[in-house]
Design a protein around this nucleic acid. Structure first.
Length: 198
DNA sequence: AGCACGATGCTCT
DNA sequence: GAGCATCGTGCTT
């Protein structure tokens, strides 16, 4: 089966409805250059955070120092710190001025696996705080455009994942978020391991 | 294999 | 000063 060469996803890819972006990022390649080493993972889990009204989104508090990247142009990174030790990676979506983003919750390593394993002390990369640790993503990657190949961090075309391989359900870790936001089916998750051959 | 809980520090009230 | 878009450990089943 022929597959196209990977190319970075353009800003126009991210400047679209957040749910569409969240779904289409499943199977995309997340590329990180860390200390000159190329680390790549296929995105296997995402969640959409959409607008001022979404009470699960940080943007519910308005535009603050922390949430500022969410209001910025699509295709940039929104990286924030939580629970005293974890960094979360988001890709900003929608038009500038409208707060929305897709949280990258899990990757399946395909390149630089040994380095990622070492950084994770042999544990997996399935979890939003785990993948950022594996890839060395912190505050310094906040605001970074994810649309430029050969920078420090970008997202490029990967494998096509059919609907039958994707589970859609409510977002997790929301705790006290009220309905209807608590149950919005805005989480996308690959059911089984992805075929990484290209 | 599943659940409960403590760690830990930054952001916003 | 409270509350996290979480993780890992340790204990129970």
């Amino acid at each position: 089966m022929a597959r196209s060469q990977p190319s970075p996803l353009p800003a126009a890819f991210f400047n679209r409805p957040t749910l569409t972006v969240a779904r289409q990022l499943i199977g995309a390649r997340l590329v990180r250059i860390l200390d000159g080493v190329r680390l790549v993972g296929l995105i296997t889990e995402t969640e959409a955070y959409f607008g001022f009204d979404d009470l699960a989104s940080h943007a519910k508090a308005g535009r603050t120092i922390r949430t500022d990247p969410m209001f910025g142009p699509a295709g940039h990174a929104y990286v924030y710190f939580t629970y005293g030790s974890h960094w979360m990676l988001n890709a900003v979506t929608e038009a500038e001025g409208f707060p929305a983003a897709v949280l990258v919750r899990a990757i399946q390593p395909v390149e630089g696996i040994a380095v990622m394993m070492e950084r994770r002390l042999g544990r997996d990369t399935l979890g939003p705080g785990k993948l950022t640790q594996a890839l060395g993503i912190t505050k310094s990657e906040n605001y970074l455009p994810l649309t430029e190949a050969n920078s420090r961090l970008w997202i490029e075309t990967g494998v096509l994942v059919p609907d039958k391989s994707v589970t859609i359900g409510p977002r997790v870790g929301l705790n006290k978020t009220p309905e209807p936001w608590f149950s919005k089916p805005w989480r996308f998750l690959v059911k089984d391991q992805l075929n990484t051959e290209r």
